Amino acid sequence: MDQTLYFILLLIGECRQYHFINDGKTWTEAQRYCRENYTDLATVDNMNDMNELNKYAARVWIGLQRASCDKWQWSSGEHALYRNWATGQPDCNDECAFMRSGQWHEGQCSDNWSFICYNANTGLIFVNQAMNWGDAQSYCRQNHTDLVSVRNQNESQQVEKILKDNNSSGSHVWIGLFRVRDSWQWSDQSDSSFRYWETDKLIVIRENRTWSGALRYCRQNHVDLVSVHSEEIQRRVMNVVKRASTAEVWLGLRHSCSDKKDNKCWPSGEPVLYLNWATGQPEGRDYCAVMFNGEWHDLACFDTRHFICNNSEFIYAFTIYQILIRVTIF
């Protein structure tokens, strides 16, 4: 957290009144001051709140901070309030969760393991077929209700029982838990996911890398491979893509499901709501997306191309938890 001295905006009670503190402090000092003297640093729920904040000084602290680990959510859309992680988990290196010996572990979503579905009519169903997390989720939704949610100790015991009955209690078994890549949280721990970030900064990397190599580079040196989630971002990408030397440039979209019409999410966690595929695209069943002549095309992920990173968080002005419900991620 940047410790630059800024003024403070704090939150007073449930009526969401803001009070301007004309005293330069670090973010941590500002949080402590607000909690000791009022309620907490300011939470921003909507554009009305933003307009209210804009009446004050040009730069003030608000209560948004980056969490130590991204948020976890069930495939059904419910918050993961109950936790049963193994020691040292989660370490935030992977994005999907499996159960082994009664405890949860992070796993690579591309790994192929058996899994447990939930059926609203018949209960839990153990599926002894090795699939990646996204394919397991699609299978459960198409044939039952969803991948299993483990929301309390009783449900955890039910899952352990069905694994024991199928001689799989020590195996890696997918459950419906995945990591949401919105690692920011409000100081007062509220569920507000309203975001209003400064305009994105796009960086063209003139190095030939595979899609995975490009993703790794962007996350290590910037924020992520670019997500094109609106016409506005599409136009910005088209403006900067001219700086690349390759005709095709990697975008952040990858699809590894057998059903090519089942749209996936961008690496940043945003659902695919905006599409700009060229005619006849996508063709493949396991592909990564590139931009070519202003349109999207599929390309084998192990090919090498230049790519675009974004160097700041995207403008979030929607409720991510509501919009992710029933959306499949890869």
Rank of each mutant, 00 (worst) to 15 (best):
T87I: 00
T87R: 00
Q89C: 00
P90I: 00
N93I: 00
N93C: 00
D94M: 01
D94W: 01
F98E: 00
F98R: 01
R100H: 01
G102S: 03
Q103S: 05
Q103R: 03
Q103A: 03
W104R: 03
W104L: 02
H105F: 15
H105W: 07
H105E: 00
G107D: 02
G107M: 01
S110N: 03
N112R: 15
W113H: 14
S114G: 06
F115D: 01
I116V: 15
C117F: 12
T122G: 08
T122M: 11
G123K: 05
L124P: 02
L124T: 10
I125Y: 07
F126T: 05
V127W: 02
N128W: 06
N128G: 05
Q129N: 13
M131S: 09
M131N: 11
M131E: 11
N132A: 06
W133Q: 12
W133V: 10
W133R: 06
G134P: 10
A136F: 06
A136S: 15
A136V: 13
Q137H: 09
Q137T: 11
Q137K: 09
S138H: 13
Y139A: 06
C140S: 08
R141E: 12
R141H: 12
R141L: 08
N143Y: 15
N143R: 13
T145F: 09
D146V: 08
N152P: 04
N152V: 07
Q153Y: 11
N154F: 13
N154E: 15
E155I: 13
E155D: 14
S156N: 13
Q157T: 13
Q158M: 12
Q158D: 14
V159W: 11
K161T: 14
K164V: 13
D165M: 09
N166F: 07
N166L: 05
S169D: 15
S169C: 05
S169G: 07
S171R: 14
S171D: 15
H172I: 02
H172S: 13
V173G: 09
V173L: 05
V173Q: 04
W174I: 08
G176A: 10
L177D: 06
F178H: 15
R179G: 09
V180T: 12
V180G: 08
R181F: 12
D182F: 11
Q185Y: 07
W186E: 04
D188F: 09
D191Y: 09
S193P: 00
S193I: 07
F194E: 04
Y196A: 14
E198N: 10
T199F: 08
D200K: 01
K201S: 13
K201M: 04
I203Q: 14
I203R: 13
I203T: 10
V204F: 05
I205C: 01
R206L: 11
R206H: 03
R206M: 04
R209E: 02
R209Q: 07
R209V: 01
T210G: 02
S212H: 05
R216Q: 14
R216Y: 05
R216V: 08
C218L: 03
